[in-house]
Amino acid sequence: MLSVTIPYRLGVASRVVAAVCGSYAVAACAAILLALGLPMDRLDAAITGSLTAVILMPFVAISCFWVRSAARAWAMMIGLSALLGVLAMTMGWQP
């Protein structure tokens, strides 16, 4: 922490919000997509989807901290949730 400036602190705060909310949104969309898309009984698909989502979530959260900027972190979170969400909608998800 060489130069702790206000823009730096805002950037960190922004990444924290992106990591917390974004990783949950991405994980939830992944869970929904898998629950609807996996070729199994609906309960089996739902459980498999949720298990995959909670394993995925910490890695998505961590990625918010190693991308170059807070803006990229946000772009990644919004992009991934949108992609997974739209794919889920094509499977019949009604948000």
Partner: peptide, 28 residues
């Protein structure tokens, strides 16, 4: 840590189940 999440997964990540059951919490 991972299995700890699993014990409370229906509370933490209910969205897949709700989507598969079209929002019918009781049936799920």
């Amino acid at each position: 840590a991972l299995t700890g999440v699993v014990t409370l997964i229906t509370l933490f990540m209910p969205w897949g189940g709700l989507a598969a059951y079209k929002g019918d919490q009781a049936a799920l």
